[in-house]
Computed example of a mutant assay.
Amino acid sequence: MTVTRDDVQAAAHRIVGQVRRTPVLRVSPTLAFKLELLQHTGSFKPRGAFNRLLSAKEQGALTGQGVVTASGGNAGLAGAYAARELGVPARIFVAVTAPAAKVARLRTLDADVVQVGNEYAEAYEAAVAEADRSGALLLHAYDQPEVVAGQGTIGLELLEDVEFDTVLVAVGGGGLIGGIATALGDRAKVVGVEPELAPTLGETLAAGELVDVQVGGVAADSLGARRFGALAFEAVQEVQSVLVSEDSIVAARNDLWREYQLAVEHGAAVTYAALQSGAYQPAPGERVVSIVCGANTDLSTIG
């Protein structure tokens, strides 16, 4: 199955009123931040979650059994929030290593939280089993058509709100970059940014097929998918992939706070890290948008 730009446009119409149209902060004539950390629940994820749930509701597939999902944090928060807003229960499976701040927030959204396994893959297996058992709607963190299309609505907003040549996107499982690449098509260059210790996109593109990748590091809680999404893989064949070091991620995160008062999680700092470290070097006059995609973090760890 392929996600199309028409799917992204349909998602934009479907989720209007449920998600925030996040602002663009113009830092300089050639750099802007898309402040998706200001989205409901502190990340871009509600876009895909609402599109998945509302599409299922239209088809009569969203029942009293509610929603089940697996997440290292942000997708779970989005699923729980969307379910609560639509009046259905949510059961969220997370790894035991999930950040305590994210787990605590899940519970404030009335979700039933189940911690299992040390990695996302183990939590996902448990979520699939629960969906099969209960008949609840399965919400994938990044590899469902409605989820990819929902995340792509960010790209449509950018086209309307700012002039740019290139967009830098943090990459985990690929739902965000897949959706944005689909929305933009050939209208702008898309660059995927990953931690050196979680190079899922880079290794997948190098292999020319979906492969399992070892992941770790400071951003693994949000960018720690071991396998890139099949749907996103179709959309990212023309994107550029760059890697950033652990030190550069930490430095960029601190600088985003010191310079712009943006408190972000490590995964959201990778795009700025690419610019600061020179991992991505814009051409003279190249207008770049950096997606700042998440704010769910322990504020005491920002230097």
Rank of each mutant, 00 (worst) to 15 (best):
L223A: 01
E196K: 10
V242C: 08
G208N: 07
Y280D: 07
G217L: 10
A32N: 08
G135A: 04
D165E: 09
D298W: 06
A131T: 06
L37P: 00
A121P: 00
V68P: 01
S43L: 09
L168R: 02
N254W: 07
R5D: 01
A279R: 09
Y280S: 10
V3Y: 01
A183D: 11
S300H: 12
G185D: 05
T297A: 13
A111Y: 04
I92H: 07
A188P: 04
D112P: 00
A82W: 05
A274Y: 10
S300G: 09
G267T: 10
G174N: 07
L205Q: 07
Q261T: 11
N74T: 13
E85D: 09
V250T: 13
E130T: 06
L256T: 11
L77I: 12
N74M: 12
R5K: 14
T97Q: 09
F93V: 06
N296K: 10
L54Q: 06
R14W: 08
G152P: 09
L138I: 12
E203S: 07
A98D: 02
V270Q: 00
E160W: 00
G152T: 03
N118I: 11
R105S: 11
Y120R: 00
R187S: 14
V242Q: 09
A235G: 03
V244Q: 03
G217K: 08
H13A: 15
G73Y: 10
A283M: 12
A251K: 11
H40F: 10
A252R: 06
D165F: 02
Q214M: 10
G150V: 00
D186N: 15
Q39V: 07
V191P: 06
L106R: 01
L176H: 08
T30E: 15
E259L: 13
P199S: 05
L31F: 06
K45C: 02
Q214G: 10
N254G: 15
G278A: 12
S28Y: 05
A279V: 12
V239L: 15
S28W: 07
A83T: 04
H40N: 15
A127Q: 10
G216V: 08
V169C: 08
F233Y: 14
D161H: 08
A101T: 14
G229D: 09
V167N: 00
T297R: 08
P89K: 05
E246S: 05
L210K: 09
V96N: 13
D247Q: 15
R14I: 08
A127W: 02
L38N: 10
D186F: 01
G175W: 06
R91A: 14
R226W: 02
E130K: 04
E238V: 00
T108L: 12
L53F: 03
V171Q: 06
V16E: 15
A131H: 07
A123V: 04
G172C: 04
T63P: 04
D161A: 14
N51Q: 12
L25K: 05
T166A: 07
E203K: 14
P29F: 02
A80I: 05
